[in-house]
Design a protein around this nucleic acid. Structure first.
Length: 429
RNA sequence: GCCGCCGUAGCUCAGUGGUAGAGCACCCGGCUGUUAACCGGGCGGUCGUCGGUUCGAUCCCGACCAGCGGCGCCA
C-alpha cells in the first residue's frame, strides 16, 4: 500500500501498486471507466476496462459515487492524459463503501460550506491549508524549544479576566462561577520564576460579539513569557520566530501554497529584522499618507490595512499611549505616558497578529495603574504576589495562530484557517 | 452593542398576486481516452416560521428564526 503522492514523485512507472482512498471524480464511457482517487497526499486517475478485470468489480467501479472509499491495485504509467501526469491501470480492488450522493457539488455557498464543514475538510484546498497549519504549529514549538524555552500549560477555566472589557464566557464551577480563559499570560508570568523562558499553545476564548473575517470566539493562542528581558529583546525573539515559521511553510508546503493560489513572493520577504515604529511616529506618517488619524486614536481595521500596504514586511508598532492598552504594560521610564509594548502588523492588509510588551514588575506602580483604571486588586491578588517575591523585569507576547495561518495562506476569512471555527453564530459542526 | 444584506429542489440560482422552473448532484439507458466528460430519460419542493392585507400570498406588509458582511473590541 503506497501513497498517491509517492507515485506522483516518480519512479513507479511499470510497477504494480495498491492505493487506498476516496473517489474524487468518476467518469465512464461504457466499457472504460476513469476514477480519480484522492488520498491525503494527492490525486491520481485510475483506468478500469471492461473485460480486463472481473465483471462484478467493473460494475462496482463504474457505479461509484463521489467520496466512496476504496482500494485499487494496478500498474503505474506516466501519461499526460491523467490529471496529475500519472495513471494506474486497474487490475483489482475492493470497495469499502459506496455512499449515497455526496452533498458537495461544484456550486457551493459560504454558508453551506460552513454547515457541512465536517465534509468540506476533505476538499483539496482545505487539505492544503490544514497541512500548512500543521507546519506552522510545529515550527512555533520547534523554534522555542531550540531557544531553550519550556513548554508549559495554564488552566482553561479561570476566575478573573486578563484584558479589560466583559468578554468572558461564564461556566458553572460547582458552587462558583468560572470563566474560559482569554489568555494564559498571567500563568506564564507565574511560571517564569521557576523556568525563566516559557511558551504555550492553547485555546483562548473571547465572548466578543465580533462579526468580522478576522475574529473567532475560540482561537489558538501561542504565548511566550521571558524573565530578565525588555520590550526590544522580546521583539527580536518574535521577528526571528515569525521568520522561522514562514520559512518552514515555504520549505515544506510549496505544493500546498500553489494549490490554494497563494503568491509566495511577499512571504519570501519576511526576514528579520522588521521595521519598528512608535505609535507617535505612526500617527504622523499616517497623516502624511492621507489617513484621518490623531493622537489617542486606536488603530482601527481600516488604519491597519492602510498602514501595512506601506511596508513589505511585518511591522512593529510600539509605545502606545497607556490609555489604549491593558493595565499591566510597563510605562517607558523616559516617557511615562507611553508604554513599552508592541503590536505586530502583518503585511498585505492583514493587520495585528501579535500583541506583547514589557510587564510592570514593580508592585507599587502596578497597584497605582490598577487604581487609576478602576480595577479591583483583590481579584488579582495572586498576580500581585508575583511582584512581592523576587520580582524581575520580564516581557511576553501573544500570537494569534489562526490569524497567522490566515495571512500566510492569503485566505478571505479566518474561519478557513481552522477546521471547526467557532464564531458568534456558529457552534456546529 | 451599532449598521447593512440574504432565506425558492440535496447544491447554485431564475421566476410570478391565480399553489413553481433551469443547471449540477443522484437514479436508469447509451458511448473503449474522459478531464467539472458528453447524449437521452427519470426522481426531486409545506417557496425559512408565524401572523396580516386580499376572493386568492412563494410574491405585498409585520414580527420572529437562521445565516452572511462591515464597524467597535481584540490576537
Amino acid at each position: 500500500m503506497i501513497k498517491i503522492g509517492d507515485i506522483l514523485r516518480g519512479g513507479y512507472e511499470g510497477k504494480e501498486v495498491s492505493i487506498r482512498g476516496w473517489v474524487y471524480r468518476c467518469r465512464s464511457s461504457g466499457k472504460i471507466t476513469f476514477t480519480v482517487v484522492r488520498d491525503s497526499s494527492g490525486i491520481i486517475q485510475c483506468i478500469s476496462k471492461e473485460g480486463e478485470i472481473p465483471d462484478d468489480l467493473y460494475e462496482q467501479i463504474k457505479g461509484l459515487t463521489i467520496e466512496s472509499s476504496l482500494e485499487l491495485t494496478g500498474t503505474v504509467s506516466k501519461d499526460t492524459r491523467g490529471v496529475t501526469g500519472y495513471e494506474i491501470k486497474v487490475k483489482g480492488g475492493k470497495i469499502y463503501q459506496r455512499n449515497e450522493s455526496f452533498p458537495i457539488s461544484r456550486d457551493k455557498s459560504e454558508e453551506f460550506l460552513l454547515d457541512i464543514r465536517h465534509l468540506w475538510l476533505r476538499s483539496r484546498e482545505f487539505t492544503a491549508v490544514l497541512k500548512i497549519r500543521a507546519t506552522a504549529f510545529n515550527a512555533f514549538s520547534e523554534f522555542f524549544n531550540r531557544e531553550g524555552f519550556y513548554n508549559v500549560q495554564g488552566p482553561m477555566m479561570v476566575s478573573a479576566q486578563t484584558e479589560g472589557g466583559s468578554t468572558l464566557f461564564e461556566v458553572p464551577f460547582f458552587d462558583q462561577k468560572a470563566y474560559l480563559t482569554q489568555s494564559s499570560q498571567f500563568y506564564l508570568e507565574a511560571l517564569i520564576f521557576s523556568l525563566e523562558k516559557v511558551y504555550t499553545i492553547a485555546p483562548s476564548f473571547r465572548a466578543e460579539k465580533s462579526r468580522t473575517r478576522r475574529h473567532l470566539t475560540e482561537y489558538w493562542h501561542a504565548e511566550g513569557e521571558v524573565a530578565w528581558i525588555g520590550n526590544e529583546e522580546m521583539m527580536q525573539i518574535e521577528e526571528r520566530m515569525i521568520e522561522y515559521i514562514v520559512s518552514a511553510v515555504l520549505r515544506d508546503n510549496a505544493e500546498d501554497l500553489a494549490l490554494i493560489g497563494r503568491n509566495v513572493e511577499p512571504l519570501k520577504k519576511v526576514k528579520a529584522p522588521f521595521p519598528r515604529m512608535k505609535y507617535r511616529e505612526l500617527i504622523e506618517k499616517a497623516q502624511s499618507w492621507g489617513l484621518n488619524m490623531k493622537y489617542m486614536d486606536d488603530l482601527g481595521a481600516d488604519e491597519e490595512r492602510a498602514i501595512t500596504v506601506h511596508f513589505d514586511k511585518p511591522v512593529f508598532v510600539t509605545h502606545y499611549p497607556q490609555e489604549l492598552k491593558a493595565f499591566y504594560h510597563r510605562p517607558d521610564p523616559e516617557s511615562p505616558d507611553e508604554i513599552l509594548c508592541h503590536d505586530l502588523l502583518a503585511p498585505e492588509g492583514c493587520g495585528e497578529i501579535i500583541g506583547g510588551g514589557e510587564r510592570i514588575w514593580e508592585l507599587e506602580i502596578l497597584e497605582e495603574r490598577m487604581r487609576s483604571m478602576n480595577i479591583d486588586p483583590k481579584a488579582y491578588s495572586w498576580y500581585l504576589d508575583l511582584r512581592r517575591y523576587g520580582s524581575v523585569p520580564h516581557s511576553g507576547f501573544g500570537l494569534g495562530l489562526d490569524r497567522l495561518i490566515w495571512w500566510v495562506c492569503g485566505l478571505d476569512s479566518i474561519r478557513d484557517a481552522i477546521p471547526f471555527p467557532r464564531t458568534i453564530r456558529r457552534i456546529t459542526p
